[in-house]
Design a protein around this nucleic acid. Structure first.
Lengths: 119, 119
DNA sequence: AAAGATAGTTCCCTTTTGGGAACCACGCCA
DNA sequence: TGGCGTGGTTCCCAAAAGGGAACTATCTTT
């Protein structure tokens, strides 16, 4: 299992807790996945693919697995055929929503400052 | 210049602004640097090294340079010898402080939830 | 004359991340 | 019987990130 990042969070020691959050939330598609589930609620795998078309299937499942192991998202499988799999935020995952909102607000201000005056 | 990440932020297009913030804030020592400057104010290079002893000199300068290019930290050089270089947050960098505080609060709750019941 | 302090840079290597293409399983429906 | 749709996995490779050790500059102190 070479592409696995399990347990890092629970095994390492940190100078500050912010590192924990950034470790969990780091990954090319992670912020977008959490943001999407946070603003739009439960989504099926295929819906997420359509929302993030430039993420490959492999990357999407990989990042979702990581979030699941960290307890941020939960995965519900309906034993139908063709399969139905739904992803949603857990309780602690849902508590990230206001934080992500604030980050987004900061980023908008940041980008605004970059555009005015030069560049 | 292979270890440079300049301009990514201003040249790419993003689905959501959260990605901008996570891109700027991604890097092994970035969150800790910003957190330190945010809670303790201006610091000299050597002080940062002492605060983060497991960061190599190379990594520390590299991450500080990236933050400088993104306009999050500012670097003041005093032309003395031996050299004195001070790092501090810019205006927009200082506005990250409450966000980081909230992230930290979330992470503390997250870790608390992980420790109670199993693991 | 040599060593120390500060803040770097450079070169080389290892590890981690990310991405593409092909493959699988299952039952349904034409 | 052979696609189709869904939600994956596997293998292999390329790119990016991180890390170690050695080197630099400058003036001061011993």
């Amino acid at each position: 299992m070479p592409e696995d990042r399990t347990h890092k969070v629970s095994c390492s020691s940190y100078v500050n807790e912010v590192e924990v959050a950034f470790e969990i939330l780091s990954g090319k598609w992670i912020p977008l996945i959490v943001w999407t589930l946070s603003t739009e609620g439960t989504k099926r795998f295929g819906e997420l693919r359509r929302i993030m078309p430039s993420a490959t299937q492999k990357m999407l499942t990989q990042q979702l697995r990581a979030l699941e192991k960290h307890g941020i998202v939960s995965r519900k499988i309906y034993p139908e055929v063709p399969p139905v799999v739904e992803y949603s935020l857990t309780d602690i995952g849902r508590k990230l929503s206001p934080v992500l909102q604030d980050i987004s607000t900061w980023a908008i201000e940041y980008l605004a400052g970059r555009n005015s005056s030069s560049r």
